[in-house]
Design a protein around this nucleic acid. Structure first.
Ligand SMILES: [Zn+2]
Ligand SMILES: [Zn+2]
Ligand SMILES: [Zn+2]
Ligand SMILES: [Zn+2]
Lengths: 137, 137
DNA sequence: CTCTAAGTGTTATATTATTACATATGTAAT
DNA sequence: ATTACATATGTAATAATATAACACTTAGAG
């Protein structure tokens, strides 16, 4: 059984623009910038920044992609359960980004913010690291 | 004993531009945007974005201020020991920002990222919340 | 004083993101 | 099939954020 059906079903309700932007991010796996996405999808019929930003906004809203704020880039969600909570490691040296997969993260981070008068609705965690290969070299 | 001396000593090595930008952020206490800072300091002699960005860069480097990535804003460090590690709560409703003061935070967050092949050099944590007063209303 | 590193002033330009508005499409009720 | 509504699209213009390049100045170390 190929994954084609599952994949298309999962993305079934997406519009054409949303789909081609999502596909690009999915195939890339890396964080991409909005104007890079625009350039890459000129041939697919995307002509203006707004078309890209609208698709990105919707995909973020759906939790299918995340925005990495400190590098103004967007990346496919690799975790499937983070909603609008994001946690990434970003290598200071090579720029490689990895989403942190830790299903207990949400509970853990809530404990960090002790003030119980606050209600955490979502979070964005950016850990700058030296990645495995950059640490060696 | 007034704090004037301590304060000026602490900022002694700052240049004129760095000082006036820092003073503005210190007096404000709120996150400010670069171009707002520029407008506010026209009368002090700041004429171009670059003058502001250069001062901001230096102050960030010195750990005296922080950049809050998700709102492209800068805020005075209210913690004095965070170096380039930042942790904020941002109210989703009113936008109020508070720096999280928790001296154990660094250790705690390191534990979150289990992969020991990674070396965390710094972090930027943005917790979106409903603040005390917004929660009530 | 001389040399150097850091900072300044200025203009221009690059990058990131939104406003405004007219048109089109999907979906559900009639 | 027609209407109504919400959502998405296409396009042009512009706003907001940030950096490059270059000539000049200042502060400190030796
Ligand atoms: Zn995710
Ligand atoms: Zn690396
Ligand atoms: Zn701080
Ligand atoms: Zn609030």
């Amino acid at each position: 059984m190929r994954s084609t059906h599952t994949h298309s079903k999962k993305n079934q309700s997406l519009t054409k623009n949303q789909r081609i932007v999502l596909d690009l991010l999915q195939n890339s796996g890396e964080p991409l910038k909005a104007y890079f996405i625009l350039d890459s999808l000129k041939k697919e019929g995307l002509n203006s920044p707004l078309q890209v930003y609208r698709a990105l906004d919707k995909l973020v809203e759906l939790g299918k992609i995340h925005k990495i704020e400190s590098i103004n880039s967007f990346i496919i969600c690799n975790n499937s359960n983070c909603a609008s909570n994001t946690a990434f490691t970003i290598c200071e040296r090579c720029g490689k980004v990895k989403e942190i997969k830790n299903k207990y993260l949400k509970d853990s981070v809530s404990d960090l913010v002790k003030d119980n008068q606050l209600e955490i609705t979502r979070y964005n965690l950016e850990f700058y690291v030296l990645c495995k290969s950059c640490k060696i070299n």
